[in-house]
């Protein structure tokens, strides 16, 4: 039987294998894959933002194959209704002719849910995901239906300035563990993408990891030790994102309307633990916190109009916070 340390080492090994397997289809995007893996191990959900055609859907679909998890895809459109996501009761008739309601499960009853172009649906429909994302269950007509773990919602969205989109409500955005950005591929990567998609290339994907292993790893991640001063640093980073905080973060004071919620601090710490394991360490360092700061906090900063007018995005402010908050304060 494998020891805890061996299991911890296996996390890194698994990720390397997953990365290798996915790279058969996906070109580049290593960091995106790494962050999605972190989300999975932390029990969080990811919001992927990027212009159409960058392979967002393909990545998620491929991941479900590699993890051997039940995959559902929901294409969000303006006319999509909550029942289309959650499922609904339909009237059914038995052999004797008696009619009864039967719950017809919606696509939310999967394990890897791809909420494609989530910002194309109306806020009402977007909110249908709230309970599922937070409590891993859905309630339909007063009946609760638990979702099968591991449960992860990976939503993709186009940049909100594009036409025909509805910005996600703050409460829902906050429920996403990470907000990930898909970068445009380099010319080399683009060349490789063209080769793989326009030629006779159909690689066979293999399952690398099983459901039980993922659940076991999720438990193990929580055991990664973290010193109190590292935790304090994470807290100070989150507090510094508030415009009325004591730290003299110029951009936060000027461009932020609301800073990160406490979920931001939770995400920072949890994600840093997995990041540390992926780096082959068994404790969280300042560097781990800094590494995951952007995906964990960028969607939690609500910027003001000045920021929009001046073209300042959340990443600029997080960089300013990382530069302005000292690693060490005297105890």
């Amino acid at each position: 039987m494998a020891t805890h340390n061996e299991k911890a080492d296996a996390i890194r090994a698994h990720f390397d294998q997953i990365n290798a397997e996915l790279s058969k289809i996906i070109v580049g995007q290593t960091q995106l894959l790494q962050n999605l893996f972190i989300c999975l191990l932390c029990g969080g959900h990811a919001l992927i933002e990027g212009v159409p055609g960058l392979g967002k859907t393909l990545i998620v679909k491929s991941m479900s194959k590699v993890f051997n998890l039940k995959y559902s895809r929901i294409q969000f459109t303006p006319d999509l209704m909550p029942a289309d996501i959650l499922g609904t009761n339909i009237i059914n008739e038995d052999e004797k002719g008696n009619r009864y309601f039967e719950f017809y499960k919606g696509p939310i009853f999967g394990q890897i849910i791809l909420a494609d172009e989530i910002n194309r649906a109306t806020p009402k429909t977007q909110s249908a995901l709230l309970e599922a994302m937070q409590e891993e269950r859905v309630t339909v007509f007063g009946t609760e239906y638990p979702l099968e773990p591991p449960f992860i919602v990976i939503a993709t969205q186009n940049p909100i300035e594009m036409e025909g989109t509805y910005p996600l409500p703050e409460a829902q955005i906050d429920r996403f563990f990470f907000k990930l950005k898909v970068d445009y591929p380099t010319s080399e990567q683009l060349s490789e993408i063209i080769d793989k998609t326009t030629e006779d290339y159909e690689p066979k994907m293999h399952s690398i990891i099983e459901r039980d292993s993922i659940l076991e790893m999720k438990t193990l991640v929580k055991q990664v030790p973290m010193a109190s001063h590292v935790k304090d640093y994470a807290i100070r980073l989150v507090l510094a994102s508030h415009p009325d905080d004591n730290y003299p973060i110029k951009k936060a004071k000027k461009y932020v309307r609301f800073g990160s919620s406490p979920r931001g601090a939770q995400s920072l710490v949890q994600a840093a633990k997995v990041w540390a394991l992926l780096q082959g360490r068994y404790n969280v360092s300042f560097e781990d916190i800094r590494e995951v700061a952007k995906p964990a906090l960028r969607h939690r900063l609500i910027l003001n109009l000045t920021a929009e007018a001046e073209g300042i995005d959340a990443d600029d402010i997080i960089e300013d916070i990382l530069g302005g908050v000292p690693i060490k304060v005297r105890s």
């Binding site: 340390n5 193990l220 990664v224 010193a227 109190s228 001063h229 969280v284």
Partner: peptide, 27 residues
């Protein structure tokens, strides 16, 4: 040292437990 020393020292002083502590102490 990636905060290894302080983490180990703190966990040792406060008597906190972790599955990874043995490995960390050895490191």
């Amino acid at each position: 040292l990636k905060e290894r020393l302080t983490t180990v020292y703190e966990y040792d002083q406060l008597g906190r437990k972790s599955l990874f502590m043995d490995r960390l102490v050895k490191e």
